[in-house]
Every structure is written in C-alpha cells, then in structure tokens.
Design a protein around this nucleic acid. Structure first.
Length: 190
DNA sequence: AAACAGATGTACT
DNA sequence: GTACATCTGTTTA
C-alpha cells in the first residue's frame, strides 16, 4: 500500500489535533528530510505565539489559509519553519522541531557541516539548515513542490510535555514527540 | 552534566 | 534598548 499524501485540508483543524497527527509523518523538501519526531503547537490565544499580538509583516502567513509554510528568523541566526493550521485567519501554527533523517542524508550532512545523524535535525534551527529552508520559502503551499508530505503508516506512541526555549506560557504541554525517538532535540521527561 | 557567552536580525515593550 | 519558539563552543560561573 503506497504512502498517503497529506493535502492542505489535513491542516484545517485545531493545532492540538494536527500536531500529534504530524508525529511519524514524512516531510521532504527537495527530496531531503525524514520522519517528523517532534513538533510544538502555537495557538493564536497563546501568549507564546507570534500571532498573539495581532498581524505583522513577519507573521502575515499565519493569518492566511491552512496548509502553508511560515518561516521566521530566530535569534538573528537560524530559520525556523511552521505549518499554518485552522482556517478563518485563526493564526495558529505548528513548529517543526526535529526530524529523523531518512532521505538526502549526505546533502543534509553537507549543509549542516556535521556527520552525526542524530545531530542533523535535532532542533528547529537545525531542521531548516539541513533541509535548506530559508525565508525565501515563506508562504509556500505544503502540498506542492518542493514539498512532499506523507501521512504516517501504522500506529505510533505520541508523548507530550512542556515546550522548550520559550519564556511565556512555558508550562503548557504543547510539545509533541515520538516516544523513545533518538532524534529529539531533548528527551521528554516522565 | 550543566552553565555560560557569543553570534546576530527583526519586532516591538 | 530589550527580548526572542536557537545553536555552538568553552568553562565550571
């Protein structure tokens, strides 16, 4: 049975439903990528979300339709990628935090300047560097080239816990991960 | 193993 | 000017 492609209607749901469903899915960008093992949900009612204080030039994509890419610069150095969810300008998105590399590994190693597979995509900035995603790709649709997105096959155990690296609403358990994965940015506690 | 400092762009208190 | 959804190399604060 061939893998099922994810279309933009997949994202037309609450971030808290889409986020766990993304764990185990396969994400490729120009043929490089792998299995999504860690994400974080950012709902527009969440003080930690970029959209919390309304629309700006940077976050405009979040206010558009679901199924599009939102890329922003983090700490002046890294790029981070999000999948926009929920229609009607709900301005909610999911941050892609870690991937288990399966495709285009040598290209990703070259872009990262690192050989260790475990360190290729174990963090949101690393994911973008490895896949070659930058601000130039902001607002691209997720169900067209250069993206390929496939639903997970079979069952997986999804764990959740507090988000990482944020100062606002840090206690909300909106980080989702693949249980036991060796490719997380950090292990999940208890 | 854990804490830190440095790099650096963009948004906005 | 300050904060920030980060990563890396260096130090033990």
């Amino acid at each position: 049975m061939p893998p099922r492609r994810l279309h933009r209607d997949f994202f037309d749901r609450s971030v808290h439903k889409v986020a766990p469903d993304l764990i185990g899915a396969t994400l490729l960008f120009n043929g490089a990528g792998g299995i999504i093992v860690e994400v974080e949900a950012y709902h527009h009612t969440d003080p930690a979300a970029h959209s919390y204080n309304g629309r700006t030039e940077r976050n405009a994509v979040m206010f558009g339709p679901p199924g599009y890419l939102y890329v922003y610069r983090s700490y002046g150095i890294h790029w981070c990628m999000n999948f926009v969810c929920e229609k009607d300008s709900s301005a909610s998105a999911i941050l892609i935090r870690a991937i288990e590399p399966t495709h285009g590994v040598r290209r990703m190693q070259r872009r990262r300047g690192v050989d260790d597979i475990r360190q290729l995509c174990s963090g949101p900035g690393k994911v973008c560097q490895a896949l070659g995603v930058t601000h130039a790709h902001n607002a691209l649709p997720l169900d067209e080239k250069p993206f390929e997105l496939f639903a997970r096959e079979g069952k997986v155990s999804v764990v959740r816990g507090p988000r990482i690296g944020i100062t606002k609403a840090a206690e909300k358990p909106w980080r989702y991960g693949l249980k036991g994965s060796k490719f997380l940015s950090k292990p999940f506690r208890a």
